[in-house]
Design a protein around this nucleic acid. Structure first.
Lengths: 215, 215
DNA sequence: AGAGGAGCTGACGGAGTGTCAGGTTAGGTT
DNA sequence: AACCTAACCTGACACTCCGTCAGCTCCTCT
């Protein structure tokens, strides 16, 4: 069902082909985290991989296409983000722990994949549906769970009726993503990395439950 | 003090020069909102402006340089965002109105300038100090005011001591920016534009005051 | 009118893109 | 071993865009 890896011209990639393809992806990833997206050239990636541009075009239609591949890989890994929210209770002390874990997990995931995520964010903002879908895939993992949690609290009457759980969840997740993408920015506010986390957790807790946490 | 506009090779730009320069900026802006940043070429901008690439290079070092110019212009206009927060009280009904106005103003500003802001965001995330500074300039306008408001509440004992006002303010502003940049994304959650605003206002209010709003 | 600087662009070398034809390599078949 | 085939790679090429410079035109002031 996974379908074999295929070259642009339809050939089936064998062992050797897969290897060079992978190497190209690795070099692209490296390239993305060291130079601005706009300046990433096929020829540079090929050079770094010790091969020729023509080989690159055998496996990917263009740089963007290769980035999509990279992003897809990451999105698969990102599915595990669900675990950060699934099956958590949002009452009392466990709620605070839930918020903390969510912030922590999310931030470290974003940090680890910041280079590709930057590009995905850009593509999505530019209206490219392929990037947009990948971004959704990652965020959905968290947002859906969070939405359900809020809905549950709402049904119990612990959250106002006029609140839209999806809107709140989506906004909180967007916040986490944005803060993660611009972590360095906070340093110039005099806010340190370690200080940031509990404050984010507070906002998440407030957003989900509508109340201050009991630490 | 503003210093005259100069060409790349140091000439002082006169009336005619200013005009073509401006036209180039306008066309670039148009270009940015119709095609992905990576695909914006000097030659296209020049063509659209009815001039030659060589002319473009007379006024800007490259596409990035021109985008910076555009961003700087926008940042000046963005200084007015301070008005959304300055001199507001964060207690009772006025607080809710303040939150609503902030969200409204912020979102519409972002919408209006989304194309350039996308690029600024990218540049900042990539660690380019010039873009980073511009982004700060815009966000500072709001964040600083918000930080002060939270500090004030904290001094009055209405906000917990362990809270870091700058971290909260920064996170809230980052949230607004992120949501604004991906407004379309929320539609796929089944969240409509009009529905989004009050929920964002709620989150802002919760973040600043730590309490639910009294509408 | 003409001097001089502002303004524009054709032309060009250099670099990246994307394609194709043709050569090389790996693995299976007889 | 000899052969075949499909996978794999790349040199070469036409094309596009970049970035620069010399030289032309236009405007303005005297």
């Amino acid at each position: 069902m996974t379908g074999q890896v295929r070259t642009v011209d339809g050939r089936v990639a064998g062992r050797r082909g897969q290897a060079t393809r992978q190497k190209l992806l690795e070099c692209l990833s490296e390239m993305l985290s060291t130079s601005p997206y706009r300046d990433v050239k096929v020829i540079d990636v090929a050079r770094m991989a010790g091969t020729s541009p023509a080989t690159f075009y055998q496996y990917f239609p263009d740089v963007e296409g290769a980035v999509l591949e990279l992003a897809e890989e990451m999105a698969k890994e990102g599915a595990t983000l669900t675990d950060l929210v699934a099956g958590r209770t949002w009452a009392g002390k466990p709620a605070w722990a839930a918020a903390e874990d969510l912030v922590d997990g999310f931030l470290s995931f974003w940090r680890k994949n910041d280079a590709i995520l930057r590009v995905v964010d850009l593509g999505a903002a530019e209206g490219d549906k392929r990037f947009y879908k990948i971004r959704m895939k990652i965020l959905n993992a968290v947002t859906n769970s969070l939405t359900d949690s809020i809905k549950e609290l709402q049904d119990k009457g612990r959250v106002d009726k006029w609140v839209n759980p999806a809107a709140i969840a989506g906004s909180l997740v967007a916040m986490l993503a944005a803060v993660a993408a611009h972590q360095k920015g906070f340093q110039s506010w005099g806010v340190k990395q370690a200080e940031l986390k509990p404050n984010l957790a507070l906002l998440v807790h407030l957003g989900v439950t509508g109340k201050k946490p009991t630490k």
